[in-house]
């Protein structure tokens, strides 16, 4: 589904990604871990099409298409979803309006008719219930005045409504208490299926107790330095990131 080869990228003139290689197949869940500043968020943003991040080398294909030649909104409509680490607040734009506009944009691109209002509301209600969110959120501005945890739930809610083929979740677990973590994990797990894939970008292993990954990668210095199965995450938790660096040298 997603194939990244030798991807290098610059932010504000500084080389952050230095040759990332990664292949994600349909039906898989991958976790990308790594110390602060290793380039995890940059990778997520580059995949979502952020313009001020400059790709200097490499290629990315998404379902056989050249992802890097697509604009951010085209990537979204093609089924790529980014759950932001720090979702921006947009006062004055209704949550429910954004959800509807996003869903319709996707349907339109797929040649499907716009969703009717009644149907849409029913869908939203069901998903919000699933995410244990109060309906009051709908009439508020996008992320406006939300707590950290509420913002993350809102990201997962949007993901559930948009049903992407590939979801990239950037530190969706950070800032969550244990109950919220469970809710978010249930949300992510509900999206798992043979046609979909999930990439979890995370600093800690605890999310991976709830969303079991097929593969775990360690990103360091802008590239993947080690890959393995879920036991790698446990080992990292026990021995810290230094261990990966040392074992690489050795």
């Amino acid at each position: 589904m997603l194939e990244i080869s030798d991807l290098s990228a610059r932010v504000a003139g500084k080389e952050i990604l230095t040759g990332v290689n990664l292949k994600v197949n349909a039906g898989e869940v991958h976790a990308i871990m790594g110390p602060n500043g290793s380039g995890k968020s940059t990778l997520a943003q580059v995949l979502a099409g952020r313009e001020d991040y400059e790709v200097t080398r490499g290629s990315v294909t998404f379902e056989g298409r050249d992802l890097l030649s697509m604009r951010a909104e085209e990537r979204a409509r093609a089924g790529l979803f980014l759950g932001f680490q720090y979702p921006v607040e947009i006062p004055g734009v209704n949550n429910v309006y954004l959800l509807k506009a996003a869903l319709n944009a996707k349907r339109k691109a797929a040649g499907e008719p716009e969703v009717d209002a009644y149907e849409f509301l029913a869908l939203i209600r069901q998903k919000m219930k699933f995410m244990q969110m109060s309906e009051a959120f709908l009439s508020r501005g996008v992320n406006e005045g939300f707590s950290g945890g509420e913002k993350k739930r809102n990201e997962v809610l949007q993901m559930l409504v948009l049903e992407p083929k590939l979801a990239i979740l950037d530190e969706t677990d950070s800032g969550l208490d244990i109950d919220a973590l469970k809710v978010v994990s249930t949300g992510v797990n509900s999206l798992r299926g043979p046609q979909r894939a999930v990439v979890l970008v995370t600093h800690y292993q605890r999310l991976l107790d709830y969303v079991i990954p097929d593969q775990v990668h360690v990103l360091s210095g802008g590239r993947i330095v080690k890959s393995g199965d879920k036991t790698l995450a446990q080992e990292l938790e026990r021995r810290g990131y230094d261990w990966v660096m040392e074992s690489r040298v050795a």
């Binding site: 932001f84 979702p87 921006v88 006062p91 734009v93 996707k106």
Partner: peptide, 30 residues
Amino acid sequence: LDPDMLFYLLSRGLDRETAQSLLVYAFLAD
């Protein structure tokens, strides 16, 4: 218009013109 807000809307699949107009409208809403 705030580039972060614009990117957020684009990443949810909204086309550029809609996203921009939406942000102009939101600007007045206060």
